[in-house]
Design a protein around this nucleic acid. Structure first.
Lengths: 128, 128
DNA sequence: ATATTAATGATAACGATAATCAATATCGAT
DNA sequence: ATCGATATTGATTATCGTTATCATTAATAT
């Protein structure tokens, strides 16, 4: 499972992973896929995302993948997702400052953040 | 519906709204609530949020409510949600710059962004 | 007033995820 | 290795939010 998530740049759903695994593991059940994803997500080895299409999507954690931090740009027309890695420095600066202050002010132990931009890609904007 | 969303600071689900409306509109169906929320969301009068608990939550749009821009701090233990309005200036600066550059670079027509922090509130952190 | 169209809501369908539970595998102690 | 206890697996079923269907009702135009 980690292997599959490591090889792709897509944002796979539980079922996608089940399908991808099926040829090599034909007796693996969907239940176990869900269970294992839960487990891996709790261990912070994979990240669960919600892009608003009613199913969870999974990515290998950046540290595991050796990847740079990124966020998502989502086309609400065709559901295409772009990972962007730009503006990293200023962003990280702000996020960390915000995180620290929010943690103090609201006594939260913050483990995670999410930043997404929604809009229409070129083709979808035209089509509208 | 707009009235109900305008009066509360909570983040109501479709069913919450249905229940809130029921005393005054006993023959209003849940289907119509969903339909109307869809409509209002498309008109940008209400915003649909996903806090990761498997149902959509709705807020009256800030312009409609006359509210300041805010983001959400979510306790993954008890699902409590805190609206925070801090760090507005630096954040808006970054978000707008990012938005502009992303729009240009990826030819996106960006309409929206989402920023959330996840963590554990004081009580849930203790309980863990 | 009547015909056409749109809005409503009850019901059923759908789809993602979670719960159940029997079967199987793993592990620890002897 | 053997036996018993415990944990893992996956088939099946249940759950729950949301959407589709469709007959009924309301609104609108002629």
């Amino acid at each position: 499972m980690l292997d599959i998530l490591g090889r792709t740049h897509d944002h796979l759903s539980a079922n996608d992973i089940f399908v991808a695994l099926h040829p090599s593991y034909p007796h693996l059940g969907l239940t176990t896929v869900y269970r294992t994803l839960d487990l891996l997500a709790n261990l912070d080895l994979v990240i669960r995302f919600d892009f608003g299409d009613g199913r969870s999507r999974f990515e290998l954690a950046e540290k595991v993948k050796g990847d740079r931090h990124h966020h998502h740009l989502i086309c609400t027309g065709c559901r295409k997702i772009i990972d962007y890695r730009d503006f990293h420095d200023k962003e990280m600066e702000l996020i960390e400052a915000t995180q620290k202050k929010l943690a103090r002010r609201y006594r939260f132990k913050i483990s995670n953040h999410l930043m997404q931009f929604f809009g229409l890609c070129e083709q979808c904007a035209k089509r509208k």
